[in-house]
């Protein structure tokens, strides 16, 4: 199988280039990550992040034939050849397929991604009905892989100002939690021409999410909350 992979090592390369690899895959090399591990066993300079190899840790997000996805849960069968692999778009490249995610995590941190509840905790659990808990489904499962945010043109233009789909999905995760008391403060934090409202419902995020989550829908719900509190 033929791969064309983005290479850049600032320690020795003046500029990035694409390198072709032809590899004979074994039947057990079912996922793209298996193929990359095989390539790396021959060329150990190929650099990428990976860990769980089952789509829950979010390490091996990359741009695969023009679409963002996780290498570990992308079957090699059916990929157009040469399989073109590039780092996630819109973030600075550290080396090869490894990007600097500082801005992504700054935006995540900016939404105060933790439960705020200033009541003294009860002796046992805080109660939450199954219906209230169901509000978190499709939201809490985010793995922070950045496939969505780095597929979003609004984030590409304003990565320092626009929270981006992953951060906003998590903002909604706490707005939607019946145990959280900081709803007004959270909405204030997003009431800004850029932070929330740069989302123009392009919906690349929905297309890119390897976990099947829908950040656009969550963003729509936050916008609804904004409207409701002004009327």
């Amino acid at each position: 199988m033929r791969f064309s992979i983005y290479r850049y090592d600032p320690d020795k390369d003046d500029k990035p280039y694409m390198q072709d690899y032809d590899v004979a895959l074994e039947p057990s090399d079912r996922m793209l990550l298996d193929a990359l591990v095989r390539i790396k066993s021959v060329d150990d300079s190929l650099s990428l992040r990976r860990s769980c190899r089952e789509g829950v840790c979010g390490s091996d997000a990359m741009n695969i034939n023009g679409r963002n996805g996780l290498a570990c849960i992308t079957p090699v069968a059916g990929l157009r050849e040469p399989v073109e692999l590039r780092p996630l778009p819109g973030l600075p490249v550290i080396r090869d397929l490894i990007v600097d995610m500082t801005q992504f995590f700054q935006q995540y941190h900016s939404i105060k991604p933790y439960l705020i509840n200033n009541d003294p905790p009860p002796e046992t659990e805080r109660l939450q009905s199954p219906a209230e808990r169901a509000e978190l489904d499709g939201v809490y499962e985010c793995i922070l892989c950045a496939c969505c945010t780095t597929a979003c043109p609004s984030f590409w233009w304003n990565p320092d100002k626009f929270v981006g789909p992953a951060g906003l999905l998590q903002a909604y995760r706490f707005l939607a939690d019946s145990r959280d008391q900081a709803g007004a403060e959270r909405l204030d934090n997003l009431e800004d021409p850029y932070r929330l409202f740069r989302c123009h419902s392009i919906m690349n995020c929905v297309d890119a999410c390897p976990k099947g989550l829908n950040p656009t829908s969550a963003i729509g719900k936050i916008k609804d909350m904004m409207v409701k509190r002004t009327v």
Binding site: L115, E125, R126, Q128, S129, P130, R133, Y140
Partner: peptide, 11 residues
């Protein structure tokens, strides 16, 4: 749970 962990819930 108090930290915010989203456990499933009983009725």
């Amino acid at each position: 749970e108090h930290f915010g962990m989203p456990f499933d819930r009983l009725e």
